[in-house]
Amino acid sequence: MSTKHKIDLYALTWRLPIILWQLIFFVGPVVFMIAISFFVVKNYRMTEAFEFVNWQRMLTRGYFWDSYWYTLFIASLSAAIAMMLAFPAAWALAFRASENLRRGAVFLLIIPFFTSYLVRTFSWYVILAESGVLNAMLGYVGLGPFKMLNTHFGTVVGYLTLTLPLAVILQTVTMANIDKTLVEAARNLGCKPLATIWRVVLPLSKTGFVVTALFCFILAFGDFVAPFYLGGSQEPTLPILILDTTKSGQQWPRAAVVAIMMMLTLFAVAFTAIMLAYRKPKVAR
C-alpha cells in the first residue's frame, strides 16, 4: 500500500502542476473571453451581465461581415499561393536533392520561423515602398514604379513571409516520406512526369498537404501585422478589428465577439480540412 502511494505521489508531481498551470493560464483566459462577450460596457467600465447586446451589435453590422469575408478570402488566397509557390521547391528538395542538402535546406528554413516577424515585415515595408529597393531595381530595367504597399499584394507578401518557409518545410517532409519505388514504378510503366506528380505523388501526399495548407491558412487568418503595415488596413481584417476594438474605446466584449467568431471559423475550417485529409482516396482507374 505504501509503495502504491509513493508511486502516485511521483506521478502526480509530473502531472498535476501542468494541469493546474494550463487550467489557470490557458483554459481560464479562453473561457473568460467567451464570458465577457456577454458582459456590458457602461461608462467605459465592463460590468458582469448576461446579455446578447454585443453579439447583436457586431453581427448586424455590415463592416463586420465585410471584414469577415475579406479575411476569409485573403487568408485562403495566400494559403493557396503559398502551397503553389512552395511545391516546385519542395518537389526538388524531396526528389532531386541529396539527403544532406535537403536536411540543410530544412535547417535554414526553420530559422526565419523563430526570428522577429515584425522586423521582417518592416523590412518588406522598405523594400516594397514607392521609391524602395524593388521599384529601384525595376526602374533599372525600365519598369514601374508599381504601387505595392497598401495593396492586397502587400498583404499577401506579408502573409507569405510567415507561411512560405513553413509550406516548403512541411511539403518537403511529406514528399520525402513517399515510397520512392512507387514513383519509379509509375515512371517505368510509362507514366509521363507531370502525370506522375498528379496521379502518384499528390494522392500519396494528400494528408500532409491538407495539413500544410491548414497551417498556412491559420497563420494568415490570425495575423494583424501584414494587413496593417503592408496592406494599409484599408480593408481591416478580423485581427485588426479585434486590435482596434480592444485598444481604442475599451470595448473588450465586442472584441471578444469577433475573436469567438474567428475561433468558430477556424474550428470549422480545421474540421473540414481534417475530414478531407483522412478521407479514403478513390481508386484511380
Binding site: 483554459v27 483566459p29 487568418f221 490570425g222 473588450w252 474567428m262 475561433m263 477556424l266
Partner: peptide, 21 residues
C-alpha cells in the same frame, strides 16, 4: 491542454489573456 495554445491565433490569445489577467 498543453499542445493546443499555438493553434489559437495570437491576437485572440492576447485579448483573452488581457481580459483574464
Amino acid at each position: 491542454l498543453i499542445l493546443l495554445p499555438p493553434t489559437i491565433p495570437l491576437i485572440i490569445m492576447a485579448l483573452a489573456m488581457l481580459a483574464w489577467l
